[in-house]
Amino acid sequence: MNQHILKKEELDAFIKKLAKRMKVVAPVAKGYDNFAFAEVTSADEIALKYVPTILPPKKYFMPVREKVLEFSADAKGFTQKPVVEYEETAIFGVHTCDLAGISCLNMVFSERPRDYNYLTRKDHLFIIGLECLSYCDEHASCALVNSHLPNGGYDLFFTDLGDKWIIHVNTQKGEDLVEGMGLPKASAADLAALEQARAAKREVFKNEIGVEAKKLPGIFAKAMKSKVWHGVGERCVSCGNCTNVCPTCYCFDMADSVGLDLRTGARTRTWDSCQFETFAKVAGNENFREERSERQRHRYFRKFSFPLDKFNRFFCTGCGRCTRTCMAKINLKETLKELAAEHN
């Protein structure tokens, strides 16, 4: 365990030094208790206490819109050139729920066929986690899925010890940075304080739905025909907010756009959502998930059932974003409780 210390008053110098090496992004307040990851150059721009941002940090791993190919057709024939755009970036202040989300995406995009755009960009991202010692709000369910504690997937990880942060160094890149900045090693007293903070945290963070996580697979195995989906589907607006803000949703659409010369063009991929009516529509206007209830059910199964079979973990990180963003009051914790009640 390699732990270092950063005094709170030194955060500004830390951010400024970091910003000289690479672009630094961190949660920034947008008003109305909304936050977003955005570029910062000093510590006072950063919202250290924040409710999960509107979009999770996945936007740096897979941009909302991304050019992936350039092509041209002329007398010589057809040529194409893959495009990977990336920028050396440090993401500061990532909560454990979002670290869990990044871990999920890493697994998905490392599957064959590998996604080189994602993986290349990942190599140029430096992740600095930030621990929550209390709940962000009532919509979080991180303890349910055990993502309230750090579980790897970062370069550095900050935990608040009052007048300083204790920093867990998890990678060589992280070590080079803290050594380069001359941050002192944590003392035995600091490590004891960290243990204390964690013990206190375990008392605060408890299963948020009163149903054990290990029971969820059994509940979902029986939930395909549940009436709960009808209630959820009747409320759904199909705006796609829940999937866009989800740290583990990764579906995208591809489209080619040709220039006015009608010879050159580019292929762009854009985030897509299984909640859109067009998502599962195929030629002949057949739609595999025509009803909103079917689309919402699919979303929940994509978090609590299918990834269990494939990756042996939930793809819900308990961040609470889908509940917060839903204009029609579709609430993840409530839905899970309703499903559990139906099958108990």
Binding site: S238, C239, G240, N241, V245
Partner: peptide, 8 residues
């Protein structure tokens, strides 16, 4: 799709 899909 609703405008929200781009707004978000």
């Amino acid at each position: 799709n609703p405008v929200c899909s781009e707004c978000k």
